[in-house]
């Protein structure tokens, strides 16, 4: 039962007030994309044991989507940040690396 702080309204929300939206920072592939690229967009997911970027919606609160960087093993939350972020922000990456020097990044 996680607690994630919604960056849109500041509430430290109980997991039961949130809705999970799967992996964050996916790039939409659409008309004109190759089958491989489209397949990757629809189905390929990192599912890491460790640092993970996720989409969450404050469903029982302000209704806004936001992103969370957290560790799926230790449950440490490195950051929650705006849903309107195409890739992990530099400060979030820095915060993760400070805590997890062995982390290989998102690539």
């Amino acid at each position: 039962m996680l607690i994630l702080t919604c960056p849109c309204c500041g509430i430290a929300a109980d997991e039961t007030e949130l809705e999970n939206g799967g992996e964050a920072h996916l790039k939409r592939a659409t008309v004109g994309s190759s089958d491989e690229a489209f397949e990757a967009y629809l189905f390929d997911r990192a599912n890491p044991k460790g640092v993970h970027f996720e989409r969450w919606r404050h469903a029982y609160g302000c209704g806004k989507w936001f992103l969370a960087a957290r560790d799926t093993v230790t449950l440490e939350v490195y950051a929650t940040y705006s849903g309107q972020t195409p890739e992990p922000p530099a400060d979030v990456v820095k915060a993760i690396k400070a805590k997890r020097p062995d982390w290989e990044g998102t690539a």
């Binding site: 939409r28 989409r55 919606r57 469903a59 209704g63 989507w65 849903g83």
Partner: peptide, 13 residues
């Protein structure tokens, strides 16, 4: 409604 908001908030903001 949630689906609409998802696209508006996270893709076409």
């Amino acid at each position: 409604h949630s689906h609409m908001e998802d696209w508006l908030q996270c893709e076409w903001w």
